[in-house]
């Protein structure tokens, strides 16, 4: 049997807004991915160790508190340190336009702002992970 693509949906930091993370988790599950949801209040360290332990293909980070510029790049950095930087990291939340290029430079593959259609998020993961 073919192994399903595994995605970790994670909530870094203290932010409690979990509506978007849960909706995205369900949409990916309904699209045939295997989804693991970390729950709230995860440190970047916790997220990376879950990702490594669960052997995921991608991580989707959600943050609506404005702390994305600190927390998102930290996850990528820790993945590199653990030699797990083949894991594709994307992010979503209240991210001002001017932060998007900075996040991409830091290694966040895609940023999904408010109003992003779910099918775009699904397509992104299908495309990015097809190559493997």
């Amino acid at each position: 049997m073919e192994r399903k693509i595994r995605v970790l949906i994670a909530k870094p930091g203290l932010d409690g807004h979990d509506r978007g993370a849960k909706v995205v988790a369900r949409a990916l599950r309904d699209a045939g991915f295997e989804v693991i949801y970390t729950g709230l209040h995860q440190t970047p360290e916790q997220i990376v160790s879950t990702a490594v332990q669960e052997d995921v293909d991608a991580i989707g980070l959600s943050c609506l508190s404005g702390a994305h510029m600190t927390l998102f790049p930290r996850v990528v950095e820790l993945l590199r340190e653990r030699g797990a930087d083949d894991i594709i990291v994307s992010g979503g939340g209240i991210v001002p336009e001017e932060d998007v290029p900075k996040l991409k430079t830091a290694g966040i593959a895609a940023v999904f702002g408010p109003g992003t259609p779910l099918k775009d998020i699904v397509e992104f993961h299908k495309k990015a992970l097809r190559k493997r």
Binding site: G13, L14, D15, T43, S65, G66, A67, L71
Partner: peptide, 16 residues
């Protein structure tokens, strides 16, 4: 209920 300089507060100071 964390002080601003608590390690768990990293990145969140005054943000929302």
């Amino acid at each position: 209920g964390h002080d601003s300089d608590d390690p768990r507060a990293v990145g969140e100071f005054g943000k929302c």
